[in-house]
Each structure stands twice: as C-alpha cells, then as structure tokens.
Design a binder for these strands. Structure first.
Lengths: 203, 203
DNA sequence: GTCTATAACGGGATAGAC
DNA sequence: GTCTATCCCGTTATAGAC
C-alpha cells in the first residue's frame, strides 16, 4: 500500500474532486465526473475511497488538519480569556475565509446524516469546548465577568463565526454585493463578533 | 386544474411527504417511497410537482407561511428597538422549536444550490432586514445605542437564533443530553441571545 | 497492490397512451 | 388527470488482467 504510483492516483483524485467540489458544489459533482477529469478509471474511485462520502471526509480531514489543530490550541492554552476569544474569533474567520470548502462540507454532513455527524473526527475539530468552558466558569466565580452559561456562550461564539459563511449567498444577494465586497463583509465580522462577545461578558 | 379530486391528491402527497421528511430526513426519503405511502402513482408526483426539489419548496412555503408573516411583522412594526428584538428572538426560537422541518429545509437548500437559494420566496421570510436596519441606524444617530453596523447586527442576530438548531445533533452529543434536555437548552437560548444582543448595544 | 471493463442497482424524471 | 413503461445518471459490486 502506498506505492508511489498508487498514491499519486489517490492524490490526483482528491485534488480533482476538491476543485470540482469548490467550483460546482459538493452535491452537484458526481464520481464519474471526478474520475473522468482525473483521467482515472471509475472503479479506482471505489478502490481508494469506498464512497463519495468517504472521499469527501478525507478531503476535509486533510484541509482542516493544521488549521483545526491551531484553533484547538488557542482554546486550550492558558492565555487570558479576552485574548483567547479574540485570537479564536479572528483566526477562525480567517480560516473560513481562506478555504471555501469548509463550511459547505460541514453543512453537507450535518444535512446528510445529522445523527451520525458527531461520530466524525473532523467535526470535533470545529466544535471543542472543554478547557474553554472551565475557564469561563472560573472567571464567573471570580466575579470578573457577568454570570453566563459557558456552553451557551460557546454555542453563540461558534454560531456568530460560522453561520454567516453558510448564508453567504443570501446576504450577498440581499445587499447586492460583488464577491470581493462580500468577502470583506465577512472578514470585517472579526471585530464585530469579538466586540459583541466581550460586551456580553462585561459587568 | 384544482378539481376537488386532484387537489386532494396533491394535498395527500404533500402531507405524506412532510411526515416522511420529518421522520427520516429529507435526503433519505425517495419520491417512490412518498408516492407508494400516499397510495398514488409515482408519475402523479411529477405531474403536480415537477421535481422533488419543488415539492420540498412547496411544503416549506406552506409550513412557514403564518409563522414567517408573524416574524416579519415583528420587525416591521414601530415598537421600540429593545422590545422588537426581544419579541423577534423569542418568537423565532419558539417557531424553530415547534417545527422540526424548518432548519433542515433551510440547510438543504443552502447546501444544494447556494447560488439559487436567494431566488426562493420562502427564504426571504427568514432573512428580512429593511425596516429593522433603518431603525438601528436611527437609534445610533440619536446616540441611544452604541455605534454598530446594522447589517452586521442583523446577521449576528439571525446566526445566534438559527445556527444552534443546525448543529443540534453535535451539541446534543457533546453534552450527552436526551432529546427533551436538548430541547430545553435550545429554548433557554431565548434569554441568552436576547441578553447578548442587548449588551452589545448598550453604551 | 493497481487497474480495467462491465453489469447491476436505485432514484429521479419523462413521453406518451388512455 | 391518471397511469405504464422507460430512460438517464450516479453509485456500487464483481470478475479478473497486469
């Protein structure tokens, strides 16, 4: 396994699939199309990946690997809460801005099999809370911030970060923006989200 | 068109489809299954609705009709900003809690054809801003609230309301909750969201 | 282990008879 | 308006060559 030749085909397939997914949307790309464009026999698709679903997951895992690790680390260090939130929000939005496949993928799996989604390793990367919740609780107990349910706060933070990317086409249409303008709106959410979160914690 | 009989068939199909969609998830229900369970020939499906997609949209339009109108009205009355936000948040979360089909549907269309989603009337119901944005601007100018971008604020509000329902399975799994407990968590977001939004506006 | 060819399956959509 | 038969396409499964 993993001979030079085989792996090249494998990568070629993932690469091609990735491009097509971005260009046309995950659900509008078929395996035949991917195989053809990659110049690979259809059956190889099934040999390397067992299904389109699995191919999707592997692409996702690959693209989220370093970014996800970095994001998780931000929450798990022992920096002050305020700084942590700022770094997390800014970094997360930056990551989402740079990889157009992340949010569609998350939506796709949630949409597909909501019950099984939690099973995926890749998803945990985007939803991680342990250390962070504890820290909030500590700060509340110390009286440094307003009393707040840590889980609710985390859910809110993630919502503020992720959802706008999901409804991007809607917002874009509503405001009549071009692509670059829309990208700018999303990026400028960094400050907006950070400030909203901090305001809700301030006593 | 619209003979008593024909309309009965139509409604029977929509009703059956609705039940199945809720029970198994939109993507795991086929048109054949719907037709069979409704005791209707498959092709009638396509006669009344041109596609599964369209069937889906019509079901959605029907179920969102009154709720959507009520939600839109809240934003368009001339109540004070604070009260408006409170009513909107509370009502919206209540609506989402009561109709298990709404969020999956929204995700489904966003996911399917992001570009074409804005075209749908039904979607506008869930994303509506005109009057609300103006009011915020006015309040800012009057100096009653902190300077804030109205569009960003609205996007945030919608994100805080909707997204948690989208990632419900994830949260449920993470926190190890039963169905009723999870429902309670979502409902208790009413206060949490409202307070977060207000805090971010307070000078 | 890598690859080809091909068939079977399943689901959505359609043409056309009645 | 209703139904039968059929088509198309994506996906999956199998048999086997190199």
């Amino acid at each position: 396994m993993d001979s030079k030749q085989g792996n090249a085909t494998r990568l070629k397939l993932m690469e091609t699939a990735r491009e097509l997914f971005i260009a046309k949307g995950v659900d509008r790309v078929g395996v035949r199309e991917i195989a053809t464009k990659a110049g690979v026999n259809l059956s190889l698709m099934n040999y390397y990946f067992q299904s389109k679903e699995n191919l999707l997951e592997q692409i996702f895992e690959t693209s989220i690997k370093e970014d996800g690790q970095r994001l998780r680390q931000i929450l798990n260090t022992d920096k002050p809460l305020e700084q942590k939130i700022k770094e997390y929000v800014y970094e997360y939005i930056e990551v989402l801005s740079n990889d157009p496949l992340l949010v569609p993928f998350v939506l796709s799996i949630i949409n597909r099999n909501a019950e099984q989604a939690p099973r995926l390793k890749s998803v945990h990367t985007l939803y991680n809370t342990e250390a962070f919740s504890k820290q909030i609780k500590t700060e509340v107990d110390k009286g440094n911030i307003k009393p707040v349910d840590p889980e609710q706060f985390y859910i809110s933070m993630v919502s503020l970060i992720l959802f706008p990317f999901a409804i991007k086409p809607l917002v874009k249409y509503r405001l009549g923006l071009a692509d670059e303008e829309m990208a700018k709106v999303l990026k400028s959410r960094k400050e907006h989200v950070y400030e909203m979160l901090m305001a809700s914690l301030k006593k």
